[in-house]
């Protein structure tokens, strides 16, 4: 999806299905887009968990150039899940980047809505 043609095709698909692209979508619409992707079998890169800050930074470096419509790529690279993760049941609710009232991930490289029981491998407490 890195070519201009690919991006155009991607954006057109969002427009056809939702009437709006992720970049223009509001909180609830983005939430719906995310849930639809997982309902249709989206698999994300949950492992490896970035154990060190350097590994964490590498993921951010990959995410940073993505445009706001690259929703699928953001979810895949960040290892997004719609459930808590691991033995400790890590979840967005306790993550430093999660704004509980806005139900929003404030990590600039993601900048997406999220539910308290979701998780991604950029989780930090």
């Amino acid at each position: 999806m890195n070519t201009e043609a690919g991006k155009t095709e991607r954006d057109a698909a969002f427009l056809a299905r939702y009437g709006v692209t992720p970049a223009e979508a509001g909180h609830d619409m983005l939430m719906r887009m995310i849930e639809d992707m997982f309902a249709e079998g989206l698999v994300t890169e949950v492992e490896p968990f970035p154990e060190t800050d350097r590994e964490f930074s590498k993921l951010l470096d990959i995410l940073r150039p993505l445009d706001a419509n690259a929703l699928r790529e953001k979810l895949v690279i960040s290892g997004w899940l719609l459930e808590p993760y691991g033995a400790d049941k890590m979840r967005c609710q306790e993550c430093m980047y999660y704004l509980v009232h806005k139900r929003w991930c404030d990590l600039p490289e993601l900048n997406l809505p999220a539910k308290p029981d979701w998780w991604c491998r950029l989780w930090r407490i």
Binding site: F49, E51, T52, D53, R54, F56, S57, D88, M90, E94, W123, R124, I125
Partner: peptide, 28 residues
């Protein structure tokens, strides 16, 4: 190294250096 100075150092998502006197379990 680039990217390490103004970035909280973590291990498995938990800060490596806790506020003085606070342990990991208590912090979580």
């Amino acid at each position: 190294n680039p990217g390490t100075v103004f970035k909280t150092q973590t291990v498995m998502g938990v800060p490596k250096d806790m506020p003085t006197g606070v342990d990991k379990v208590g912090y979580i």
